[in-house]
Design a protein around this nucleic acid. Structure first.
Lengths: 185, 185
DNA sequence: GTCTATATCAAGATAGAC
DNA sequence: GTCTATCTTGATATAGAC
């Protein structure tokens, strides 16, 4: 199946980049249009509002994580150690090349608690991340402990992404993955 | 010495609350003025720009942490365990009652990398947090290990504040403090 | 599908009366 | 020190030509 390459997806991808670097409210429709080589009015041919782009952006990244990363936890015929290494490696590959950090983490801190449209998507993203990691860990720990460890490591990952981007230092971020792998050595 | 209670401080305190809950760019001068019982033009009697309020807000919170929390690490005549317990308790008291999370963490994710005015203040806040925690831990660990532990726990604290506010669950956040204290049991 | 043009509104900020 | 009033800019969004 060929890779889908619609203009709509292009807009979302450019929007994601800008949202991550400059934030949601500090990114204008004109900024997004510029990045796409369009004029701001033209964006409304694809999306009816900025909010719709924001939600699509969250869903797009979430979907990537579901398909490429979380799914590893539920695959048959792969060893626990192999699973966790691939899980960690794919997350690292993503965030080490993700200028501006984690879109959904950024939105979590920028968006008001009342914005349930965005917030529900963000919660689902993190819950599924925790669930997938807990699933892998549960092959060596009991369910309760696996879940607690997963939650801790997702939070730690988010904290280290914050620090990595604040200080421009990937080293500290990378220690998290190593520690997760070490749990299953 | 009586507690200083200028109107300028009131504005900063209201701004901090709004910035934490709704974000910096999503908070307008009119919002801040409303919260203060003023009209937006009146704010300019105290501050020349929104950016100035933003910076003052960051400095105000940073200063609170320096005076009330980080300073504990450098006090004479207090046991290591007593220090760490008070250090953790004061941080908990702050964030458990801080609607919208950590102002400087929020700004770290919302503000562009290029905004060095804000970013330098944020970096200083986190570096001094790490330094103070490392100082306490260095009474039981060697300097290198103490610094690594401190960095890890500051990052973890930020991640858990994110999750606490996202899910409305203080329980997970509270485990961080307990683990820091456990390091010195 | 992209453009020009524009409507509408809210933002940051300033001037000057009281 | 706070107000009314206003300026200017930039934001989201829409209508309609090409």
């Amino acid at each position: 199946m060929a890779i889908k390459k619609t203009s709509k997806e292009d807009i979302v991808k450019h929007a994601i980049r800008l949202f991550k670097i400059n934030g949601y409210y500090n990114t204008s429709m004109a900024n997004i249009a510029d990045a796409c080589g369009l004029i701001k009015g033209s964006i409304y041919h694809y999306f009816k509002s900025k909010e719709e782009i924001g939600l699509e952006a969250l869903k797009y990244v979430h979907e990537y994580f579901e398909e490429k990363i979380y799914s590893l936890a539920y695959q048959e015929g792969m060893g626990t150690k192999q699973k966790i290494e691939l899980f960690v490696k794919r997350i690292d590959d993503y965030f080490l090349h993700s200028e501006g950090g984690c879109l959904l983490g950024n939105f979590a801190l920028e968006i008001s608690f009342e914005n349930t449209l965005f917030r529900d998507e963000i919660k689902s993203y993190f819950l599924n991340w925790e669930k997938a990691l807990a699933r892998i860990l549960s092959e060596r720990f009991d369910d309760q402990e696996a879940l607690e460890l997963a939650r801790k490591y997702v939070a730690l990952t988010q904290g280290e992404i914050m620090m990595m981007n604040l200080f421009g230092s990937p080293e500290r971020y990378l220690k998290v993955g190593k520690k997760i792998i070490a749990l299953l050595e």
